[in-house]
Simulated scan of single mutants.
Amino acid sequence: MSIKTFCNKALLFAALAILASPSFAQIANGRYVIINQFSGKAMDVSNRSQDDGANIIQWTYGGGTNQQWDVTNLGNGYYSIRAAHSGKSIDVYEWNSNDGADARQWTWLNGQNQHWAIDNVGNNTFAITSRFSAKALEVFEFNAADGGDIRLWTYWGGASQLWRFNPVSTNGGGNNGSITGATCNSTGSTSVSSTIRVTSGTYDGGCRTFNPTSALGDGGQSESQQPAFRVENGATLRNVIIGNNGVDGIHVYNGGTLENIRWTNVGEDAMTIKSSGTVNVRNISGYNGEDKFIQVNAASTLNVSNCVVDNMGKFLRQNGGTTFRTVVSVDRCQISNMGEGIFRSDSPNSEARITNSRLRNAGSICIGNWASCTSSGITNY
């Protein structure tokens, strides 16, 4: 018997209620990489086929246009989703309304089996359901491997049925111009009751979810909270998911690198630069913080690339009332729903720039006193 048979009814009813709600923001028209929440892999047309009937699968994202999808609002509550390389639509193959029906690509015919509801179910994840059958696209049988089949099943709210829509930048840049953010899918969980120190080399979290306990803080706005990780002396932290209690995130001393990190729920701050150095941050995602995403407490150089950050007070804040020099560069990021803005500083010596990025409801780019604060290649969506 399928594992879905045992799904808790309360979870199912709650999920269906979410899908019925009209209050969630819609997806904007544009080109996206569609990443499965369970596997962390991208929706893909098998073998880059341009043929009608080509299978839709998942694969590690490699930047190919067979892994990019043009999403268009049809104006009737539904969307078309068409492969960028072929122009063909995701299609409920052979009008099959049963659980397990195939998802294939087919020439756009405007049939209801090619119309898709895209519903935000929270934490920047979406369910994709067919107008024809009301069933959801999912990674079939919880397959986390490259080549895992994508089919349709009655919606029940599991991670295999949830998707992230990461915009593909039209402004160039590395990684084929894509903005994907973090790509880790959780491989398990680890409880953290004392700060994990990364003092040299590389700490690879293996895409595990690290759940700080109350010994480090409660994820609120108290300044006395401890970080989940402390990165020092140019060391690297990668492939980490920080769980719902974000405490004080990650502290960096004397420079370091953060790579492929996802903050599920930002606490006091997602990361803080505590002492001088160069900090490189790439392929990150962060959601749901009350104040700052990044706090800068010391003269430093900060380079951020390929980030997705949503629902914060500010993207970055230099410690209030300070005049030390900070140089900030942000490239290929999607930043949305900032309560105040992106960059804030009181220092006439600091510089910030943001390039090749997508903004929505992000407030002012530059707030306060900067020696230089610039933007270019910005798209509002």
Rank of each mutant, 00 (worst) to 15 (best):
64 G>I: 11
311 N>H: 09
114 Q>W: 09
244 N>L: 08
225 Q>H: 04
56 I>F: 02
255 G>F: 03
128 I>D: 03
331 D>N: 14
211 N>H: 08
329 S>C: 09
240 V>W: 01
103 A>K: 00
262 R>P: 04
68 Q>Y: 02
208 R>F: 13
203 Y>D: 02
318 Q>S: 06
15 A>F: 13
102 D>W: 09
300 S>M: 01
306 N>Y: 03
224 S>V: 06
246 G>D: 04
136 A>G: 11
259 E>G: 06
100 G>S: 10
237 L>I: 05
300 S>C: 10
248 D>P: 07
153 W>I: 05
87 G>S: 02
159 A>G: 12
201 G>W: 07
96 N>P: 03
31 R>E: 14
360 R>K: 09
261 I>T: 01
259 E>D: 13
333 C>Q: 06
198 V>L: 11
333 C>H: 04
318 Q>F: 09
8 N>Y: 12
295 Q>P: 00
125 T>Q: 15
172 G>N: 14
143 N>G: 11
272 T>L: 11
344 R>V: 14
56 I>N: 10
165 F>H: 07
23 S>K: 14
105 Q>P: 02
284 I>F: 15
236 T>Q: 01
180 T>A: 07
20 A>M: 00
281 V>L: 08
67 Q>H: 11
288 N>H: 10
114 Q>R: 06
280 N>H: 14
358 R>Q: 13
58 Q>N: 04
148 G>P: 01
175 N>P: 04
305 S>W: 08
110 N>I: 05
225 Q>A: 02
249 G>K: 00
100 G>H: 11
308 V>T: 15
284 I>T: 11
258 L>F: 05
202 T>W: 05
317 R>T: 08
213 T>W: 02
242 I>A: 00
266 V>N: 01
238 R>T: 05
335 I>H: 00
307 C>L: 12
38 F>G: 09
241 I>Q: 08
255 G>V: 14
203 Y>M: 11
294 I>Q: 09
302 L>C: 00
320 G>T: 13
117 A>P: 02
25 A>D: 05
116 W>P: 04
338 M>E: 03
231 V>I: 12
127 A>D: 10
145 A>V: 13
311 N>I: 04
312 M>P: 01
254 N>Q: 15
126 F>C: 05
68 Q>P: 02
351 E>P: 02
321 G>A: 13
325 R>Y: 02
224 S>I: 07
52 D>G: 12
254 N>G: 09
336 S>D: 11
17 A>R: 10
63 G>C: 06
224 S>R: 10
211 N>W: 07
142 F>S: 01
88 K>A: 05
340 E>W: 12
242 I>M: 09
194 S>A: 10
5 T>C: 03
185 N>S: 15
65 T>D: 15
244 N>C: 06
364 S>Q: 10
364 S>T: 12
272 T>C: 01
292 K>E: 15
230 R>E: 15
343 F>E: 05
236 T>Y: 03
200 S>P: 09
243 G>S: 04
187 T>N: 10
4 K>T: 13
61 Y>N: 02
145 A>Y: 13
193 S>Y: 08
210 F>K: 06
181 G>Q: 04
231 V>H: 03
